[in-house]
């Protein structure tokens, strides 16, 4: 499933790199401890987090994630948006809780890496 369809179904806003909406999403990952995300998320996964600082872009680039959903209505730092735009990392925002975002992703048929 492509990021575009997921963004549409979640009614999520795109705050950076809209070109990445064409990315194929291989599965989902949720977590706010960056080292755990680094270790466990797989390439192409869509990551749900509450963090909004620039380091989430580094994690996304290094793991090769298909995108980030910043949940719980967190406002994304301008510095993060700038860096995400430079690196081509697509960030979506959702007013829903991380739990509800993940529940929606599961209903769409996404799975975790293990």
């Amino acid at each position: 499933m492509r990021l575009k369809e997921i963004a549409k179904q979640l009614d999520a806003s795109v705050v950076s790199a809209p070109d990445g909406l064409a990315n194929e999403v291989s599965g989902g990952y949720v977590g706010d401890l960056l080292s755990v995300v680094m270790a466990r998320a797989k390439q192409g996964n869509l990551w749900v987090t509450v963090h909004a600082h620039p380091n989430i872009v580094a994690v996304a680039t290094l793991v090769g994630l298909s995108g980030i959903i910043v949940a719980e209505g967190t406002v994304v730092d301008p510095a993060t948006i700038k860096r995400a735009t430079e690196e081509g990392v697509t960030i979506l925002t959702s007013a829903h809780s991380s739990f509800n975002v993940v529940a929606s992703l599961v209903r769409m048929g996404l799975e975790g890496p293990f």
Binding site: D32, L33, L34, S35, V36, A39, H51
Partner: peptide, 15 residues
């Protein structure tokens, strides 16, 4: 609070 300090860094390197 920024999501660091999980105590997994050195383990990630090792693994």
């Amino acid at each position: 609070e920024m999501g660091f300090g999980a105590g997994m860094g050195l383990n990630n390197i090792k693994n």
